[in-house]
């Protein structure tokens, strides 16, 4: 690995979705970050449900699975294995939503409030108590904080000449982010078609060494930035652990 420092630059930045370029890392390290985001960052998710009354059309088990998939906001000070209790009490006619979940910690709530849990008809009622646990994505996908996490090479486009006079005007599609005179240009700025950006030119595309464009989405349990930072922290912890283990 090169001795140069890492460099991070954001292309898009939002609480739920972000794109950023990391420079001076190896493909293996990029994949390490991706896996850490998915697998090593613990998030809260409903794990055990105690039903007081369920006269809805779905079985307890089905509702339990649906509740588990609801993303919960995860405050920073929770450690893996810690638990929170939530309650839900809805009477029909009407729909029980994820937003109806009440927790004993005001910082923990459903990240999305309009997820229908179950539609209740006349005289149907759902009352339950649930335990949300801090768990890892490696144990169950419901604990994954990141969604559709991926990366690709940053690319550079070189103009190598003019396109032949009677060439077909086929589009030349490229998806991702390109670097142009030290500036980052997402390809959707020009409809992912290089022929609109470089009309009448013949171009060659080259991967930029050691530069990766990450695309990270969060399920809402924490902002993307925090998710990535926590993931990198777990990598640091792992490296420390290894160092301790091999020391004589």
């Amino acid at each position: 690995m090169s001795s140069q420092d890492f460099d991070v630059e954001f292309v898009d930045r939002d609480d739920r979705e972000a794109r950023f370029v990391v420079r001076n890392i190896t493909p293996a390290f990029a994949n390490g970050i991706r896996r850490a985001i998915l697998v090593d960052v613990p998030t809260l998710s409903i794990d055990t449900v105690r039903f007081v009354e369920n006269s809805s059309v779905m079985f307890d088990e089905q509702l339990g699975l649906r509740l588990g998939l609801v993303p919960l906001t995860t405050p920073e000070d929770y450690a893996a294995g810690e638990a929170v209790t939530l309650a839900l009490d809805v009477e029909g006619p009407g729909t029980a939503y994820s937003g109806d979940l009440v927790s004993n910690d005001p910082e923990v709530e459903a990240a999305d409030e309009n997820i229908p849990i179950i539609e209740l008809k006349d005289d149907q009622r759902l009352e339950l108590e649930a335990d949300a646990v801090m768990g890892h994505g490696r144990d169950h996908a419901k604990h994954q904080g990141g969604v559709a996490v991926g990366y690709r090479h940053l690319q550079r486009v070189h103009v190598v000449g003019d396109s032949p006079e009677y060439a077909d005007d086929d589009p030349q599609m490229l998806r991702g982010v390109i670097e142009e005179d030290d500036e980052l240009v997402p390809t959707d700025d020009f409809d992912n078609d290089l022929t609109t950006r470089y009309p009448g030119k013949e171009v060659e595309i080259e991967d930029v060494d050691g530069a990766f464009v990450f695309h990270v989405e969060s399920d809402g349990s924490m902002p993307v930035e925090e998710l990535v930072l926590r993931a990198v922290d777990t990598l640091v912890d792992r490296a420390d652990e290894l160092e301790q283990a091999v020391q004589l």
């Binding site: 649906r66 309009n114 997820i115 229908p116 994954q144 969604v147 399920d219």
Partner: peptide, 21 residues
């Protein structure tokens, strides 16, 4: 029966948008 909470393939929360859709 009820709309799935998340996308089967990628895990994005889709149930959130069902009623608007």
């Amino acid at each position: 029966m009820m709309v799935p909470v998340r996308c089967f393939s990628c895990g994005t929360v889709v149930g959130e948008h069902w009623e608007a859709f």
